[in-house]
């Protein structure tokens, strides 16, 4: 069953909620139970900014099965303003025009459909800013 696995991540996928360590200020996305930097255990909930830049990217031509209808699609490591990094598709663009350093922002999109009758899975993707 995919529902519970999907549902558990909704705060991150829909609202980009992260955990800011009360000790050292390091922001973990997704949230963690222990800070990887200072081993602190107290966190404050924060929302990540929706703007960032591409650090590196690729264009997938041979996909995993759930993405077979979408190729070719661009996917990138994006550093959001403030330093947190995510892996995200970059859509609404000609992938051949992407560049390292390019500014992007996140939009709410459908990420996967679980078959023809299963749940629809949403989350963030990036578009050129």
């Amino acid at each position: 069953m995919f529902s519970s696995r999907y549902w558990r991540e909704i705060p991150q996928r829909y609202r980009m909620e992260a955990a800011k360590c009360s000790g050292c200020g390091h922001v973990s996305f997704p949230p963690r139970l222990i800070c990887p930097k200072c081993k602190g255990r107290k966190f404050e909930k924060v929302r990540l900014p929706d703007q960032g830049k591409i650090l590196t990217y690729t264009v997938i031509h041979v996909p995993a099965t759930p993405f077979k209808d979408e190729v070719p699609f661009a996917i990138a490591v994006v550093e959001l303003d403030g330093g947190v990094r995510i892996t995200s598709q970059v859509v609404d663009c000609d992938p051949s025009t992407l560049t390292i350093g390019q500014r992007v922002r996140t939009e709410f999109r459908k990420l996967q459909e679980i078959g023809d009758a299963g749940i629809l899975c949403y989350g963030y993707k990036c578009v050129p800013a």
Partner: peptide
């Protein structure tokens, strides 16, 4: 786009 539907567009407009 294939990854857009009533829900995704509603979210953007509402934001």
């Amino acid at each position: 786009a294939p990854d857009q539907d009533t829900i995704t567009m509603s979210v953007e407009a509402s934001r």
